[in-house]
Design a protein around this nucleic acid. Sequence first.
DNA 1: TCCCAGGGCATCA
DNA 2: TGATGCCATGGG
Length: 303
Amino acid sequence: MIYRTIEIPIKGLFNEQECLWFLSRGYDDCLYRVYPDRVRRAFQSGTEQMLVDIYPLPDRLVVNWLTAEPSEQGEDHIRDFLNGWFDLEIELEVFYQKLSFYPELAYMTTQFRGLRFMGMPDLFEAFAWSIIGQQINLPFAYKIKRRLVEHYGSLIDYQGDRHYLFPSPESVAGASINDLKVMQLSGRKIEYLMTMASEITDHKLSKKILYALPDFAGRLKYLTSLRGIGQWTANYVLMKSLKERSSIPHGDAGLLNTLLRHHIITDKNDGAAIEELFRGFSGWESYLVFYLWRSLAPDPNSQ
DNA sequence: TCCCAGGGCATCA
DNA sequence: TGATGCCATGGG
């Protein structure tokens, strides 16, 4: 039974298969399920919980509500979320023009054509995920994330499957330190995670507060003043959650590896070459990072 | 056993 | 301002 269907039009290049592939790409993300033609995810808006199927098509997203008719606010919440998740308002042509100037990178304009920056619209989820992922490998990070979500997140039971929502900052702020340790979070990371949860529940930090700061540099400065948030995490959260186009998570292990692989740098301390590259992508730095990360994974079409 | 992994902090010169 | 050590643990 489908309770409501909406269609969200997409302007410009959009490769639905690349985006679906990115969502699965071999990792175990507990917040959605990817099928060949759609992704299923649970959402919460206020006290309203919703489960929807999202069908990405070349020119639009089709969204079906599976458990109940949404309220007007619920529908708006999902429209906003999808806009951030699939980066629906970007026009990629300018980025591809810039890529085409670089012989080592030009292949991306065809191989990854239509791939949008896959965001993480929920601010607390973005902070929690970036803190969890600091300095550990991704499979382990996804394991910890699943433990956290299954313990502190609420869920929608649908046709025998559990669809989890990311834990609220309130539930994490009130968590027991011992319970978090059992999940194999380090003492430092527990401290950072609870700091961020408290900042948000105390209304000291929100997307609105960050947007109200004068510019990107101001947002970076504010975030890096918080305990546990360094340059990497601040840039990661700003690009994933606030769609900051000029973010570069400096020092990122994957980024440095892919720059080596593309022969843009010859050693990981070659900051000048990195700066030189990103200077050519002004306003598109985070897109370049995202495409470089994408290139680390095998091409799904060649498997 | 060793090194790396989608870092950050404290300390010290 | 930059270098070093430490945290913490899975995975190759």
